[in-house]
Design a binder for these strands. Structure first.
Lengths: 147, 147
DNA sequence: ACTGTCACTATCAATTTGATAGTATGTTAC
DNA sequence: GTAACATACTATCAAATTGATAGTGACAGT
């Protein structure tokens, strides 16, 4: 799929898909959120071919979701850390995970707990303005230009 | 990416990626949520090749996210409607869109309003248990088996 | 009979994927 | 000092996927 198409689309979902429309990228982001930063960590944990990993890390870096950082001069070693944009992707990951737990959740799954209370996290998407859960109220879509 | 790997993974995010790891599928789901149901509607709106659309609709149907339904016997015509699993994908779409609006939002974008109040929807992910916004508190990850 | 609609399939070139092996730059152990 | 090890990759290339284009089958309308 041509990424240039989405970047100019007026739909914010399409805009996100330049990097998101790829399973490896999402898994790399997931791992980055658990604290992984290095090439070999991602490669081993994901069992991904190094050619693919190189390409994905380059794209995520270009897109401003990861940042390359030198962590050793001698020997020269780089690592990849989340930017603010990358960190803000966490809610998306949680919702993807929540959907998977609900509809692909047969068998044992990883669980996410609130570290303070020790309770399992139950993510919900609310509209901050009305307080209503997304999906419970009708939505109106406004194209740019149609005011 | 081999979809058999993710289906057996203990990570709920990986489980979702069997169909989610593809930009077209997400765009089809987005369009399905706006009310599109027919092959030609999706094809025209997305400018997607019919070969690809056929494959994606088949996968989404097999995965239980869309459901094929006959809407005309003569001539024989099918349409694709969201299942409960498909409808429950809406929060994910909103969060993907929210990220795109924030980090890829230069230029005019589509807006989503609450139809009752007419206010723009500001989606947030909260932990229903603690009430805290996702990303504001430390998370503990528990692998199945490690209790 | 002719044109149009809809939901596709057939064909096939071009691109992408990903497995495997190897490289560049060092450190560490003996 | 040299052999092994570590890390972050690149080179090569077969296989799979993508997607553009053209065509098909079943019917409807005029």
């Amino acid at each position: 799929m041509n990424s240039k198409i989405n970047a100019k689309n007026s739909c914010p979902i399409a805009r996100s898909l330049d990097f998101l429309g790829d399973a490896w990228s999402i898994l790399i982001l997931r791992d980055a959120h658990t604290g992984l930063t290095r090439f070999e960590q991602f490669r081993k944990n994901l069992s991904i071919a190094p050619t693919i990993l190189t390409k994905r890390l380059a794209t995520l870096t270009e897109e401003g979701i990861l940042e390359k950082r030198v962590y050793s001069e001698h020997p020269p070693r780089d690592e990849y850390v989340l930017t603010a944009a990358g960190r803000d992707f966490l809610p998306v990951l949680f919702m993807i995970g929540d959907w998977g737990r609900k509809y692909r959740g047969d068998g044992k799954l990883v669980r996410f707990l609130d570290a303070e209370t020790g309770t399992e996290i139950k993510p919900v998407v609310l509209d901050e303005v009305t307080g209503a859960k997304i999906g419970t109220r009708p939505i109106q879509i406004i194209e740019p230009g149609d005011e």
